[in-house]
Amino acid sequence: MSGYLTTHVLDTARGCPASGLRIALARVETGGREWLAEMVTNDDGRTDGAILPENRFKPGSYELVFHAGDYLRATGQVTGPLFLDEVPIRFGMEKGHYHVPLLLSPYGYSTYRGS
C-alpha cells in the first residue's frame, strides 16, 4: 500500500472553514526542499483533491506551508503587523492516508494527524 496526503484549514476565530487560504507542499531532503504542489482551499476549507496524490507519494519527510497571513488580512482579522504569517508544519510519512489539518486564529494554531 502506498500513501497520500490531504489537509484542511478551520478558522477557529470565526468558527468556519478557511476558504481561499494558499497551501504549499514540499518534500524535505538532504540539502533542501523540493516543492511539489500549491493549492488554495475551497469553501469547505479543503483542497479540491489530495495535495499529494498516491501516484506521487513516497515515504519521507514533508512540509506543508500554510500562508496564514494573506488569509488573515483578506478576512479582516489582522490590520497591523502579523503575529502569524507563514505556518510551516514538518512531518514524516511512511504509508497510508495522512490528513494534516490546521486549526487557525490570528494569534495561534494547532494541528494533529487526522483521519
Rank of each mutant, 00 (worst) to 15 (best):
E29S: 13
G92V: 01
V87W: 10
L36K: 10
Y112T: 11
L72P: 01
E54Q: 11
L5P: 13
P53G: 10
K95D: 14
A68G: 07
G3L: 00
G96Y: 03
G76M: 00
L52K: 10
K58H: 14
A13P: 00
Y107E: 14
T41L: 02
A24N: 11
G31D: 01
T12M: 08
Y71M: 02
K58I: 12
Q77I: 01
G15S: 02
K58F: 02
Y112A: 01
D11C: 14
V78R: 11
S61K: 13
R22H: 08
G69E: 06
T111K: 08
T47W: 06
F57M: 03
R46I: 03
E54F: 04
G3N: 05
W35E: 08
L64W: 01
H8K: 06
P81G: 15
A68K: 08
E34Q: 14
L102G: 10
V100P: 02
A68M: 04
V87E: 07
T12R: 13
G31E: 03
V78M: 12
P17S: 09
L10N: 08
W35P: 02
L21K: 11
P59R: 11
T6A: 04
G31V: 08
D70L: 09
A24R: 15
G32E: 05
L10P: 02
K95P: 01
R33N: 13
Y71S: 07
S115Q: 12
P17Q: 08
G31N: 10
R14M: 09
G32L: 04
R27K: 15
A18S: 10
V87N: 04
L25K: 13
Y112V: 00
A74K: 15
S2H: 13
T111W: 11
E94K: 05
V40T: 15
F66T: 05
S19M: 11
K58E: 15
R113K: 05
S61C: 07
A68P: 03
A24Q: 15
L5E: 10
N42S: 12
D11R: 12
L102S: 09
T79Y: 02
V9E: 00
G31I: 00
L36G: 09
E54A: 15
P81L: 11
Y4T: 01
D85S: 13
D44E: 14
Y4S: 11
E34M: 01
Y107L: 14
K95A: 13
F91V: 02
L25I: 13
T111H: 07
G80R: 14
A74E: 12
V28N: 00
L5C: 07
G108Q: 10
A74L: 03
G114V: 01
K95C: 07
L103Q: 15
S61Q: 14
L84A: 04
L25T: 07
S105D: 13
Y109D: 05
G114T: 05
G76H: 03
V78H: 09
D11A: 11
